[in-house]
Write a protein that binds this DNA or RNA. Structure first.
Lengths: 96, 96
DNA sequence: TGATATAATATCGATACATGATATAGCTTC
DNA sequence: GAAGCTATATCATGTATCGATATTATATCA
C-alpha cells in the first residue's frame, strides 16, 4: 500500500498511544490537515482490515470510543514510509 | 490542493530542470515509486491547468517531448509542502 | 517513396478512494 | 422515558488511479 501523509500520521500516532477517530481528527487539524469523518473512518476500517492497526471498543461516559493500536505489520510499513519521507525531505533540502 | 509524495516530487524536480513524462516515470521508479502513465500524464495536465507548471513541446529525433517547468505559483505551494514534509519527518523521528 | 520501427504523449472504461451530509448507537440526566 | 451528547457508520456523488490501447511525428532502410 502507498501511504500518504494522513495514513503515516495515523500509524505513527497509534504506535505511541491508543487513538480514536473523533479526537484524532482534531489532532490532525492542529497539524493543519482537514479531514472529513467520511474519509477518516473508512481509512481506519481499511487499515484495520489490512492488519496494520487493531481496535478495542471502550465505553467512556456512555459514548463508545473505538481505540486503535498499531500492529506488528503496521510498524513494518510505518518504517518503510519513514524511510520514504526522510528521502523526500533530504532531496527537498538538497538544492536550497 | 493537498500534495502527495508524487506531486511534491514533480514540483521539486521541475524546479531544478525541465522534466518530461516518460523520463520522469523512470526517475520516480528509481526512487521506489511505481506510477502508471495513465496516472502520471493527467497529473501533469492538472498541475499545468492549475498554473503550477508550464509546458513547452520539443522535437527530439522525431519524438515529441513535452517539457515542464515550475511556475511562481508552483514554487509557492512547493514551499508549503516542504514545510509539511519537514514537520512530518520531525515528528516521526521524535520518539525513536 | 513508402513501410516499419520507435519514443513519447493522450485517452478510455473500470475500479478505488475522498467528500459532506445524514443516520445510528449507547449511555446520562432530568 | 424523552432529550441531549459524543462518537461511529454509511450513503450518493465526485475525483483519482489503473492498465490497456490509440495516436503522433519523425527516422531508417528496402
Amino acid at each position: 500500500m502507498e501511504l500518504g501523509f494522513i495514513r503515516i500520521h495515523i500509524l505513527h500516532h497509534t504506535a505511541i498511544e491508543p487513538v480514536y477517530g473523533s479526537e484524532f481528527q482534531a489532532e490532525l487539524k492542529r497539524h493543519g490537515y482537514e479531514i472529513a469523518f467520511g474519509t477518516l473512518y473508512p481509512i481506519f476500517h481499511r487499515l484495520e482490515k489490512d492488519g496494520y492497526i487493531s481496535s478495542k471498543k471502550e465505553n467512556v461516559k456512555g459514548k463508545i470510543r473505538k481505540y486503535y493500536n498499531i500492529t506488528e505489520a503496521g510498524i513494518a510499513i510505518l518504517k518503510q514510509a519513514n524511510v520514504k519521507a526522510n528521502e523526500l525531505v533530504a532531496e527537498l533540502n538538497e538544492n536550497d
